[in-house]
Simulated assay, not measured.
Amino acid sequence: MLRMAEALRRALNLGSSAESEEYTTEAGPPLLLLGGPGSGKTSLLFTAALEAAGEGRGPILFLTQRPLQSLPRGRGAVLDPLRLQKIRFQYPPSTHELLQLLCSAHEARGPAPSLLLLDGLEEYLVGDWGPQEVAYLAALLLDTAAHFSHQIGPGHGCGLIVALQIQEEGDSGDALQLSLLQRYFPAQCWLQVDAQGPGQHCLRACLDPGGQGPRAEWWVAFQPDGEMTVTPWPAQTGNPSSDKGSSSEGQP
């Protein structure tokens, strides 16, 4: 279950035992994880948390409005209680509580997180939020990750991955919010359910690291027993970005 998250983290240089033994302050841009309902965003975030927890660095801070209903299936590292203990879950129930939590991050005691994850950003972008409010929340997330990086010390850093649910046919307000968020999160990973893939439940994952490296695409197949396999997406001809839909449509 860890291979997809490891591949994403390597592509973003957010830290990988195979290529780097520690995070760097210049590790790469924060990542915006995009996909429709049921596209596997939460599973991938949790897998990234488990993979980071096994690197022997600081704790992982996982923010979400609701507790996870189940753990991903798997063996070995996935079920390692020592990894699970390093993941600190917090459940701000509203936008106000989320903002309070981020604003008070500098007051928190203990080791700084090596990875900050936020699941379900769309649940906090509610009401009559306009561009200024969306920009404020995005900037606050980046500032919090930067603060944790400063706490960790020179030569290290705190990664940031935020998951946002998008609709295939979003309204103009959703499109404006996404366009604004993309300014703060130049690196993006699009997830799309694909029934033609090699597995019982298959996703197409497209990673654009925001100019920090080449674009990459994978099949992510979930088998009936919960095991996840990752294979490269077939090579595309012509312009590699020609099949990527517009931001407002949410297609990879």
Rank of each mutant, 00 (worst) to 15 (best):
I60N: 10
P29I: 03
N13Y: 05
S20C: 10
A112Q: 01
A11F: 06
E22C: 09
D143Y: 04
S94M: 02
L137C: 02
L99K: 13
E227P: 01
L207P: 01
G245K: 12
Q223S: 14
H201C: 14
R183G: 14
L2K: 10
A48M: 10
Q251N: 14
S179I: 01
R215N: 10
N239T: 12
S247Q: 08
A7I: 00
L164H: 14
W190D: 06
P252I: 02
C206K: 05
C202F: 04
P224W: 03
I161Q: 06
E107P: 02
T237P: 02
S39N: 13
L121P: 08
T231D: 11
V230A: 08
S17D: 15
G56S: 03
E55G: 04
L84P: 04
L125W: 04
L68A: 08
Q188T: 15
A53Q: 01
L31I: 11
G238R: 01
G170C: 10
F62E: 10
E21P: 00
P186K: 01
F89C: 00
A49F: 02
S179F: 06
L32Y: 12
V134D: 00
E169G: 08
A105P: 07
E169I: 05
V78S: 05
E122L: 02
G74W: 03
S94K: 04
S16N: 09
T231R: 11
P92V: 00
Q167S: 15
L14H: 14
G250T: 13
L33M: 14
D119R: 06
L102E: 13
L33W: 12
G40C: 04
S179R: 11
Y124K: 01
S39A: 15
L8E: 00
Q90E: 05
N239E: 15
V220Y: 00
P111S: 00
T24E: 14
D143F: 01
S172P: 02
V126P: 03
T25G: 15
G110M: 08
R10V: 10
L68W: 06
P59R: 08
W233L: 12
R75E: 15
P214A: 13
D171Q: 00
A175T: 05
Y184M: 07
M1A: 07
A205S: 09
Q177E: 07
Q65I: 03
F222H: 13
F62R: 03
F222D: 04
Y136K: 04
G199Y: 11
H156M: 10
N13A: 14
Q167C: 15
L160T: 00
P234M: 14
S17H: 09
A187C: 12
G35N: 05
V126Q: 11
D174K: 05
V78W: 09
G74E: 02
D171G: 06
P232A: 10
D225W: 06
T95M: 07
E133M: 12
H150C: 04
V230P: 04
G74H: 07
G245D: 15
A187L: 04
S20K: 12
Q223F: 12
L142V: 06
E107F: 13
G170F: 13
E107K: 09
L207T: 07
R57I: 08
P198C: 13
